[in-house]
Design a protein around this nucleic acid. Structure first.
Lengths: 136, 136
DNA sequence: CTAGTTGCAAATCATTTGCACTTGC
DNA sequence: GCAAGTGCAAATGATTTGCAACTAG
């Protein structure tokens, strides 16, 4: 049950929240749009409004349960927050998103920010191109 | 005159296009939104419609004259394409965008992409935080 | 001349908000 | 019971598009 996890971050354990959190955790492709969540729940017979999906996702984001990313093309996707930070490969052919982490890049970012007198609170690195599957 | 530059990329040298290109080239802060362009031209007495600004900016982007970036917060900015690629610091307080280049990061990105069997066509790295000026 | 371009208004799209109603605790 | 949460419909803000009038080559 996700009930506890929700209360832990100060949110009432309501049906929509539980369903959405569950869906995010089980989603095969981690990165989903609000619309994706809405459609999936609707198809599963859950009667959750799109506005609620947006509200809940925003609350989850504020609570640190999910991250929101804005990829080129202007619309955003959400993913359950993982233990470790990571960056993304975005395939321009099939739209797939793959995750990766590179310690060298992570470290340099901090250094560069410091050099410029910038307090880094967050960062996002997206590599766009063609994934292995699409090249085949 | 920008006339030649426009024709070179296959676009008729019309007044709106010339004005917009000129504005982008002279803009003090390189990164401007479509709205910024529209307002600046209006204030300068140029009668260019917002729809035209969007159309022209998109054409410029396709022609490789400008780049479009989508920063977190969901709205995009345009900048005249520079000789060199660069990444961005985005100040969450004042919205300012600063540019930087780090060879170490650039090189690692290529390596990482290769390791994952990914053909990189483009990438974007944005560091979010508080800039020097806002900390003061 | 005439295909490409423009301005304006109306149309979209993603996301947000107002409000009367419902539900967790 | 009551504040917090929800659904729906209407509002928003950014961007796009239809179309009749205009202009560069």
């Amino acid at each position: 049950m996700n009930d506890k996890e929700l209360r832990k971050v100060g949110l009432k354990a309501t049906t929509p929240r539980i369903k959405i959190l569950q869906f995010l955790a089980e989603a095969q492709h981690h990165h989903v749009s609000a619309e994706d969540v809405y459609k999936a729940l609707s198809e599963a017979g859950e009667d959750v409004g799109l506005a609620t999906v947006y509200r809940v996702l925003t609350q989850f984001q504020e609570a640190g349960l999910v991250e929101r990313h804005y990829f080129e093309s202007g619309h955003s996707v959400f993913e359950i927050k993982q233990d470790q930070h990571h960056d993304h490969f975005v395939c321009l052919k099939c739209g797939t998103v793959e995750e990766f982490v590179d310690p060298v890049i992570e470290a340099r970012q901090l250094d560069v920010a410091r050099e410029y007198g910038f307090d880094m609170t967050d960062h996002s690195l997206n590599i766009y191109g063609v994934c292995k599957a699409c090249k085949a």
